[in-house]
Design a protein around this nucleic acid. Sequence first.
DNA 1: GAAGTTAGACAAGATGCTTGTCTATGTCCA
DNA 2: TGGACATAGACAAGCATCTTGTCTAACTTC
Lengths: 170, 170
Amino acid sequence: MSRSGADLALLLLGGFRSLVDAAQEELGRRGYEDVRPVHDFAIRAIAAGADSASELSRRTAVTKQAAAQTISVLQDRGYVVRQADPGDARRKRLHVTDRGFDLLREGEAIFDELREQWARRIGIERLQQLEAQLSELVGSAAVRVDAPGWVATQDFGPSAAVETTTRSGA
Amino acid sequence: MSRSGADLALLLLGGFRSLVDAAQEELGRRGYEDVRPVHDFAIRAIAAGADSASELSRRTAVTKQAAAQTISVLQDRGYVVRQADPGDARRKRLHVTDRGFDLLREGEAIFDELREQWARRIGIERLQQLEAQLSELVGSAAVRVDAPGWVATQDFGPSAAVETTTRSGA
DNA sequence: GAAGTTAGACAAGATGCTTGTCTATGTCCA
DNA sequence: TGGACATAGACAAGCATCTTGTCTAACTTC
């Protein structure tokens, strides 16, 4: 089975989706019905130091505008707040709220549980092998936790990025 | 490395995306600049027998409308054609064009090449192990080649489906 | 031949992204 | 010190993909 390269891709996607779908469902049961993986990852990135829209956009490889939109959703739903930056009047600093941190914790716990289920099914050694092989292939650069845009751009189209605004050049 | 469940999910996604991005880029270089993975999978499904919009929608777990839209794009770009069905005046039979089949062939070749690159990097045995383990975890049901909607729905939201139209019940 | 089902289409809306353009603020340096 | 340039954030418009909801025309079943 799965000798074709396309099958390999599908397997990887299948694995990802089955984890993420299960996680999202469970998250819904635990009272976070309004979140998607992107949100989780974006909050994580903000907590990890991407505390402005521009910075978030850089780290996540989407346009500033896209980042701003995500932030505005997160703010509406109570996961982050925006505060004026005392040192730079242009910036608005992002802070993850308690609810935001709660979400991150729940998310981690759920993913860990799912991983344990997998470990029980194929054995922890084999799962670790799988992880080791994948991380060798994918490289750690791609595994940055703070990469929401990368998680789900429009139908996997080419990911644009990098300061689109002041481009104009031509 | 990668002891957390979230990392595992990210690894899987990373693997998938790196394959798909590379494939899409290479496909562009070979003269198919107007296709996305969804299109490839949709054409594949049509070639595999999903020869009407309704059937495609069922197999791909998206609404009929979404399927119809995809078909219309594929038709505009010359990958499929629609013909009246002699036996059923409601239906319009779908046929993959030569260009469509060319695309499928190129796509397969590219994915196979990518898989070989991976095999060279970690060894064919380990790659096969990885595939075997994944397919054990994911199950073959999820690996259906004909599942575009499943590939990339809106930001990995819950995938709806199944004859949405005549629902109305409530 | 009436009741129900199915194929396909039109319209509108949600999401999540993209350009393009603009203002206000900071920074660099001649 | 002041002008050139970079940067933060925002508004507007548009694209792509998917979703409801509604409708007609054509089968199917009994």
